Simulated assay, not measured.
Amino acid sequence: MEAVLPKNPVNDHEDGIGVVNPHPYNVVLSNPNICRVKDLFMLVYVHTGADHYRRRAVIRQTWGDIKRFPNMRVMFVMGKTSTIKSMQDALQFESTTYGDILEEDFEDTYHNLTFKGIGALKFISHYCNNVKYVLKTDDDVFVNMYTLQNHLMQLEGAGYNKNLILCLVWWKMHALREGKWSIPKEMYPEALYPPYCSGMAYVLSTDVAPKLYDASFFVKFFWVDDVYL
Rank of each mutant, 00 (worst) to 15 (best):
V28T: 13
N161H: 07
N33P: 03
Q92S: 15
T137L: 06
L204M: 11
A209S: 08
Y193N: 02
N33A: 10
L29M: 14
P9Q: 04
T83I: 07
V169S: 10
T206A: 08
Y110D: 12
I101M: 12
G64Y: 00
E178F: 10
E156F: 01
V169H: 06
L155M: 15
M42P: 01
V219M: 09
D89Y: 04
E186C: 07
V134H: 00
R36S: 14
S182L: 05
N144Y: 07
R68V: 08
R68E: 11
V219L: 10
Y133R: 01
F76C: 02
F222C: 06
K7M: 09
N112M: 14
Q154H: 11
W170A: 14
V219N: 07
W171N: 14
K211S: 06
N130Q: 12
L29R: 05
Y193P: 00
T137I: 01
H126W: 05
L192F: 14
K116A: 06
P6L: 10
I101G: 00
S205D: 01
K220A: 13
D15M: 10
V134G: 02
E103T: 08
M72T: 11
F222N: 03
S182E: 09
K132W: 04
K116I: 04
P184R: 14
P194V: 11
V169F: 11
K172S: 12
M78P: 01
N161S: 14
V19H: 03
G179W: 00
L91F: 03
V37F: 02
Y160Q: 10
K180I: 14
N71Y: 08
G157M: 11
V219Y: 07
L192Y: 14
H126I: 06
D39I: 08
L5K: 03
G119T: 00
M153E: 13
T137E: 02
E2T: 11
K172N: 12
M72N: 15
P32K: 08
Y188R: 00
Q88L: 15
L40A: 03
P184C: 04
R60C: 06
E178G: 07
W181M: 13
E156R: 04
N161D: 15
N11S: 10
M145K: 06
D226N: 06
H126M: 07
I84Q: 11
M1W: 13
G117E: 09
S216W: 02
N8A: 13
N163I: 10
L5V: 07
D214F: 01
N11A: 14
D15L: 11
L204W: 14
L91M: 12
E190I: 06
E103L: 12
N8F: 12
V141D: 09
D105K: 00
L148Q: 06
I183V: 15
N71S: 15
G49M: 12
Y196H: 14
M78L: 10
V203A: 05
N26C: 15
G157D: 14
L121E: 07
E186I: 03
Y202Q: 03
Y45F: 15
I66L: 08
M145T: 15
L192M: 13
L135K: 00
I34S: 03
W170V: 12
R177V: 02
C35P: 00
N112K: 08
F218Q: 09
